[in-house]
Simulated scan of single mutants.
Amino acid sequence: MKKNKRIAIRLSEEQKNKIIKLSEDDNLTMTDLIVNKIITDPPKKIFKLPLEEIEFINKNYSIIGDQINLIAKQVNIAKKIDNNTLIELNEVLKKLIIIKSKSNAIMQEVINEGKVD
């Protein structure tokens, strides 16, 4: 392929020296080193995590954990589980499933963002 186009970039002395060293170590020209790095090993995408959602999930995991512990304590004290406690536990577990689903959706996004086309 004919190389007849130029791109000028500005670097610090330190950056330039690093590129020179890398090109020498790999026995490549600086052009080939840079082009190969960009084309064959493209930079990874930066995925911005939805912090509000993560904070919501973490807060709710904590609340749900506290609720489950409270229910477990009540059952241990009473040495039995009544209908109301079962209903309460069921509601808490439903919340846990919703939160876990949101958490999984966020993780799937992170995984998908990391994939290279």
Results as ranks from 00 to 15, higher is better:
73 K>E: 15
14 E>P: 05
59 K>V: 07
63 I>T: 14
74 Q>N: 11
68 I>Y: 09
65 G>A: 06
79 K>I: 00
46 I>N: 11
42 P>Y: 08
32 D>Q: 08
31 T>N: 11
77 I>K: 14
23 S>M: 04
18 K>M: 05
32 D>F: 00
25 D>E: 14
22 L>G: 01
60 N>H: 11
50 P>D: 15
27 N>I: 01
28 L>Q: 14
54 I>C: 05
63 I>D: 15
53 E>Q: 15
66 D>E: 13
50 P>N: 15
24 E>G: 01
52 E>M: 06
44 K>L: 08
12 S>E: 14
43 P>M: 01
57 I>R: 12
27 N>K: 07
21 K>A: 11
39 I>L: 10
79 K>S: 02
54 I>N: 03
41 D>E: 13
77 I>E: 15
32 D>C: 00
31 T>C: 00
41 D>H: 07
70 L>C: 04
38 I>K: 05
35 V>M: 07
76 N>Q: 07
71 I>H: 06
14 E>W: 07
22 L>D: 04
49 L>M: 12
46 I>D: 12
21 K>I: 04
40 T>F: 04
36 N>G: 00
60 N>D: 13
58 N>S: 09
70 L>E: 15
39 I>N: 07
17 N>W: 03
55 E>N: 14
58 N>I: 09
44 K>T: 11
18 K>T: 09
56 F>A: 06
55 E>A: 10
43 P>N: 02
12 S>D: 13
79 K>E: 11
42 P>F: 06
54 I>Q: 05
45 K>V: 15
81 I>V: 11
79 K>Q: 10
54 I>A: 01
72 A>K: 14
21 K>G: 02
53 E>K: 15
77 I>F: 11
27 N>L: 01
19 I>H: 08
64 I>P: 13
48 K>T: 14
26 D>C: 02
63 I>W: 07
40 T>I: 00
42 P>V: 06
73 K>M: 11
23 S>I: 02
65 G>S: 07
73 K>S: 09
56 F>I: 04
17 N>P: 01
63 I>A: 08
48 K>L: 13
64 I>N: 11
49 L>G: 04
45 K>W: 10
56 F>P: 03
47 F>W: 15
18 K>Y: 05
13 E>V: 05
64 I>D: 14
15 Q>C: 02
52 E>T: 10
48 K>C: 07
48 K>I: 15
26 D>A: 06
39 I>Q: 08
41 D>N: 10
60 N>T: 08
34 I>N: 02
21 K>T: 12
66 D>S: 12
64 I>S: 09
61 Y>V: 13
46 I>P: 01
57 I>E: 14
29 T>V: 00
43 P>G: 00
38 I>P: 06
45 K>D: 15
24 E>T: 09
27 N>C: 00
54 I>K: 10
38 I>W: 09
23 S>L: 02
47 F>H: 15
75 V>A: 07
77 I>D: 12
60 N>V: 03
20 I>C: 01
39 I>M: 07
18 K>R: 08
25 D>P: 01
41 D>V: 02
41 D>S: 04
53 E>C: 06
17 N>Q: 12
58 N>G: 03
28 L>V: 04
28 L>K: 14
55 E>T: 14
80 K>E: 08
